[in-house]
Design a protein around this nucleic acid. Structure first.
Lengths: 230, 230
DNA sequence: GACTATTTGTTCGTATGTATC
DNA sequence: CGATACATACGAACAAATAGT
């Protein structure tokens, strides 16, 4: 394969791209140590400073880890390594937030339908505990948000669909910012608890239609609240 | 606020953190230009090189954009920042075709509902054309697959939800292999055309319920066919 | 625990490429 | 076109952290 490089990009970005694709191709395995900056500089025929900047880009992307006095290591792959803290929450445009909430709503509609059928008793117990915690943290918006997230992630795990679990976790990243905003309102917190309690009951008695209705009601409510807040 | 910084971190990471939090706090708005490297260096009392590396980290994180000969800009949030982790999420579970099809089904359930309401006449015309092409390529599984993909992507565009469009595009990549397998069967191809025709008609007359029923029927049919094929 | 080699972190000066007016 | 402002790249030097002896 010819090493075609876009010359419009700057040097350190090109080097970052090259290192990234080498990692992706598996030439350097996760956990493994990369050559030293010196060696990389020679390898790519650039100065050490350029390699350092390229590495900094990859650090920001969560692909590698640079340890002072030690070396450069490929981060092990997990979904978490891609879930870099999304700063988007605040920068999120209103239209994008709507799109995210909407997709989350559609996704969860299917998730709860499956979850009501596949849930085990132990799942219900765990969901119930989470619900209790949610009700207990009625005064603490932050903890409540965490309970809410926990509840929905657990729910997605019940559905037995790995792709859905991963997607939901990603969608939650930028949404937490939006939700935190909404949870400032005490009435919204109360409403949220009520809806989750109803949702849980539907799942417990395995009424898929009812569960789906409640989850959609909840998400739609959040979308409305967001629209008014902005 | 006291400038409490974790001294275990290196300088450029600390600077990156500081710049990030300033952006988060809205001191620099999306699209706005940051001070020059020189000024940032003075501001944080570090050398230019350190600021440059800090910026490289933020470039990797997709938070800022550095334009040669121009300046440093806060990226207005683009949905692209999601595509990377979402891509990873799908790839991590790509071997599970059932999970992919299921998520696709849930997603498209919402998409068609929106699409029936928001579609314009020109959208219908384009969908109709694609449908004709699909019917014309009854003998060619490859071309048919492409028509099918085109049809569904167009549909998602009608829904006016960019997240959904991107998500569907990504989902289709690992699915093409599976679908190609199913399309080897002539009966399945015929059935597919019939279902798409019915789906199109529902959208044309803006019957959301009917459209949703048909898309779910189609995806469920594909899931069944896949199960039998294995 | 101390010493040493290795490796990354930080700084500065200088030259060059690029965008804007 | 020229002038200016700015980011990019290089090399050399020293500081600081780490791992191994």
């Amino acid at each position: 394969m010819a090493n075609v490089q876009n010359l419009s990009k700057t040097r350190y970005v090109r080097v970052a791209d090259q290192i990234e694709s080498m990692i992706m191709r598996g030439e350097w395995q996760p956990g493994q140590r990369l050559p030293t900056l010196e060696e990389l500089a020679t390898m790519f025929a650039v100065s050490r400073a350029v390699v350092r900047e390229a590495c900094s880009v990859l650090v920001g992307a969560g692909l590698i880890e640079v340890r002072h006095g030690d070396g450069i290591y490929v981060k092990s792959f997990s979904l978490d390594s891609f879930l870099r803290p999304i700063h988007a929450a605040i920068l999120l445009a209103a239209s994008d937030a709507r799109a995210l909430l909407e997709v989350g709503m559609w996704l969860e509609g299917g998730i709860v339908e499956q979850a009501t059928q596949r849930r085990r008793r132990q799942d219900c117990e765990f969901l119930s505990e989470t619900l209790f915690m949610m009700e207990a943290s009625r005064e603490d918006a932050g903890r409540m948000m965490e309970c809410e997230r926990q509840f929905h992630v657990t729910l997605s795990e019940c559905a037995g669909n790995e792709v859905a679990v991963n997607l939901l976790r990603i969608l939650y990243q930028p949404l937490t910012g939006v939700m935190n905003l909404l949870l400032m309102d005490e009435d919204f917190r109360d409403e949220m608890i009520t809806l989750h309690r109803a949702l849980y009951d539907s799942i417990a008695v395995q009424d898929g239609e009812s569960a789906k209705r409640h989850i959609q009601l909840y998400r739609r409510r959040a979308m409305d609240a967001m629209r008014n807040a902005k």
